[in-house]
């Protein structure tokens, strides 16, 4: 299937269950307010994904997960596939500021939402995020494969206010498996970054 080239299979589009005008005004329902993806004859859908602040128009098989859209279509390979079934956390990204598993999220379902991946975490000048620096300083990883997911989860963990104690951090980071078992150092990294994030 073509990924980014538009209009390969014609103009027959139907818009399903368009958002009702009344609902569109409610701020809490950004997803509902956004136009639904449009469907082509072939069954492919045109979808616009907003990733790291940029809109990306794509034509996707509706079965494409957000993870596969990021990796195979947008070539943002920082988000990792570790299980593809919601059991490891390596694919963790933020959707509208909340950490979610991109492997269990359909790409078409996040049209209208803001997706942030590990590639979008660094500052505009390229400076690494305090959480990224803390992972480096504390050796909060070994092979590094789960690390993007750990860091996305860790940033959310602090923002949610779940980084109060070592025990709380460990509990709220338990959805991110690290087979190299850097866990105590991940906790240490989050404690280091917590202060900087709260100040900054």
């Amino acid at each position: 299937m073509s990924t980014t080239s538009p209009a390969a299979d014609g103009p027959t589009r139907r818009r399903l269950f368009e958002a009702a005008a009344g609902l569109a005004a409610a701020p809490a329902i950004a997803q509902a307010a956004a136009p639904a993806p449009t469907v082509r004859k072939s069954g492919a859908v045109d979808v616009v994904l907003n990733v790291n602040g940029q809109d990306h128009p794509l034509t996707l098989d509706p079965r494409t997960t957000l993870l596969d859209a990021l990796r195979e279509h947008l070539h943002l390979t920082g988000s990792k596939k570790g299980c593809d079934q919601g059991q490891c956390g390596a694919c963790t990204v933020h959707v509208d500021g909340e950490r979610v598993l991109s492997c269990l999220t359909l790409a078409v379902a996040v049209q209208g939402a803001k997706v942030t991946t590990i590639e979008g975490l660094a500052g505009p000048n390229g400076a690494v995020h305090p959480m990224q620096q803390a992972f480096i300083d504390n050796d909060g990883f070994q092979c590094g494969y789960c690390t993007p997911g750990q860091i996305m989860s860790a940033v959310a963990c602090v923002k949610e206010g779940h980084a109060g104690s070592d025990g709380e951090i460990a509990e709220y980071m338990s959805g991110n498996l690290c087979r190299c078992a850097a866990y105590p150092k991940i906790v240490a990294a989050i404690k280091q970054a917590r202060g900087k994030m709260e100040r900054g």
Partner: peptide, 10 residues
């Protein structure tokens, strides 16, 4: 840096 930014290529 490569590992924490997603730049490391597996």
């Amino acid at each position: 840096v490569a590992k924490v930014t997603g730049e490391a290529r597996y």
